Computed example of a mutant assay.
Amino acid sequence: MSEESVFYKRLKGIVKQSGKSVNQIERELGYSRNALNNYKNIIEPSGSRLLKLARYFKVSPEFLIGEAEAPSQTNIEIIFKSLNEKQKLEMLKFCQNWVENIIKNTQFSDK
């Protein structure tokens, strides 16, 4: 049994965070079935496929191939989906308070 590539480990992680199945993502990208599973072994995608996957998941290509430790772009939807219900409610309360403070501290002129 061979070791998974860095690319495949990272791909699996962001697929899981997306809440979608690999097959669903392959369909959305127009790839053949199991196209993404072909990267399980030490195979890396072509440059064009790497860029397409990075844009789809809103991460940097460098992150996907292991040259960066963290994605340079953050997809707030992925982060939100990874939260449990209690955390989502806490986030909602935080955002409501933040917006209320912005509105309260904003001076509106009658021009």
Results as ranks from 00 to 15, higher is better:
94 F>T: 14
32 S>Y: 10
14 I>A: 00
106 T>R: 03
57 F>V: 02
31 Y>G: 02
24 Q>N: 09
31 Y>S: 02
3 E>Q: 11
67 E>H: 09
78 I>K: 07
23 N>Q: 14
104 K>A: 13
36 L>P: 04
109 S>V: 14
46 S>Y: 03
16 K>C: 00
16 K>E: 14
57 F>N: 01
72 S>L: 12
74 T>L: 14
54 A>L: 01
84 N>E: 07
59 V>F: 02
9 K>F: 00
14 I>M: 03
84 N>L: 00
80 F>N: 04
89 L>E: 15
18 S>E: 10
34 N>P: 03
57 F>L: 08
102 I>K: 07
47 G>S: 15
22 V>C: 03
106 T>F: 11
91 M>Y: 11
85 E>Q: 07
50 L>R: 07
62 E>F: 01
32 S>F: 05
84 N>V: 00
62 E>N: 12
40 K>I: 08
54 A>D: 04
65 I>H: 02
23 N>W: 02
33 R>K: 15
53 L>V: 08
20 K>D: 08
105 N>K: 08
51 L>S: 13
3 E>R: 11
25 I>M: 10
33 R>N: 13
10 R>P: 07
10 R>Q: 05
66 G>Q: 10
96 Q>T: 08
100 E>H: 06
25 I>K: 01
47 G>D: 15
107 Q>W: 11
57 F>Q: 02
5 S>P: 00
9 K>V: 03
16 K>A: 11
33 R>E: 13
57 F>M: 05
22 V>I: 11
110 D>H: 12
104 K>C: 00
22 V>N: 07
79 I>Q: 12
91 M>S: 12
86 K>H: 03
6 V>K: 02
29 L>I: 05
31 Y>Q: 09
10 R>K: 09
18 S>A: 08
105 N>G: 15
28 E>V: 06
61 P>G: 03
7 F>S: 04
12 K>M: 09
100 E>G: 01
75 N>Q: 07
31 Y>A: 06
67 E>F: 08
60 S>M: 01
62 E>S: 13
58 K>E: 15
97 N>W: 02
40 K>M: 11
